[in-house]
Computed example of a mutant assay.
Amino acid sequence: MNTTPAIVQAFAPTGTLRASINLGNPILANRDAASGQPFGVSIDLANGLAQALGVPIELVVFDAAGKSVEAVEQGRADIGFFAIDPKRGEHIAFTAPYVLIEGSYMVPQASPLQANDEVDRAGTRVVVGKGSAYDLFLTRELKAADIVRAPTSPAVVDVFVEQKAEVAAGVRQQLESDLARFPGHRLLPGRFMMIQQAMGVGKARGADAAAYLAAYVERQKASGFVADALQRHGIQGASVAPAAGG
């Protein structure tokens, strides 16, 4: 990785690397209850990139994926951490994924639904986090079911219970933690999608910046940095993505 002045300028035109952080995905980022400071694998990766570039870092924190994406698209942040999706890829250059996460469905215990492929039927309301990767995916994939959008991913199960909807969709780990708050529900076996979490930079920053970021992610996967971060933060339900092209 050749950190040239042009690369530094591309990533940090203000002199500071502004990293867009989505707190809506607990696998990637959380907020410390005592200090209020964000922590997680995405923050570790952001700090590592700032160190490689030799610039200070500013965390630009959001409560939903859609807001985090917009910040990078509009140039209010320099990099971000997103699930790879074709729509987002119109303006953002993604690296290969660094983490793989399962997208799952939750249903009431008494629901007749037993499998993921039974969800897409008329009269079924599927609650998703607005602008999330699984919102974008299910908007394309579901043909008969109706989509109900909660304001953020952590609010999905609250809206699902409040509206007595048929299905809640989300990151498996988030849904599993919500089961403790809302007994009388269950997860359908397996997954409806594999969410590929990647780093991203606005395409307007140029091909060299995109290539530099891609190389940075591959180095952090290969060195064990990502695996160590997941272990250090006690993350279950996520795995380090294989090497690009592997």
Rank of each mutant, 00 (worst) to 15 (best):
V119E: 01
K130A: 15
V107A: 07
Q109S: 12
P189R: 05
I101E: 12
E166W: 02
Y216I: 02
L213W: 01
E118Q: 15
A227R: 10
P242F: 09
A243P: 11
A122L: 13
D178H: 11
T139Q: 15
I147E: 04
T4I: 08
A211V: 07
T3S: 13
S42C: 11
Y134A: 08
G206W: 02
D178I: 04
A46W: 02
P97E: 08
A10W: 07
D85S: 12
E90I: 10
V171A: 14
P112R: 08
A155H: 09
V161T: 11
A180P: 01
R172H: 14
T16V: 14
Y216F: 13
G234F: 10
T3D: 13
A6W: 01
S223P: 02
Y212E: 09
M1R: 12
R31W: 01
D78P: 04
I147P: 07
A227M: 01
V126Q: 04
G206N: 03
D178W: 06
A215I: 00
A222W: 00
E176A: 14
Q163S: 15
V72I: 11
N116T: 09
A77E: 04
E58T: 11
S132F: 09
K164R: 15
A50E: 04
A214H: 10
I235K: 05
Q197A: 14
V72Y: 09
G54W: 01
I7H: 12
K143D: 06
D135R: 00
R31D: 00
Q109M: 12
L100V: 05
A204I: 03
V107N: 06
Q173D: 11
G75W: 00
D63T: 12
H185E: 04
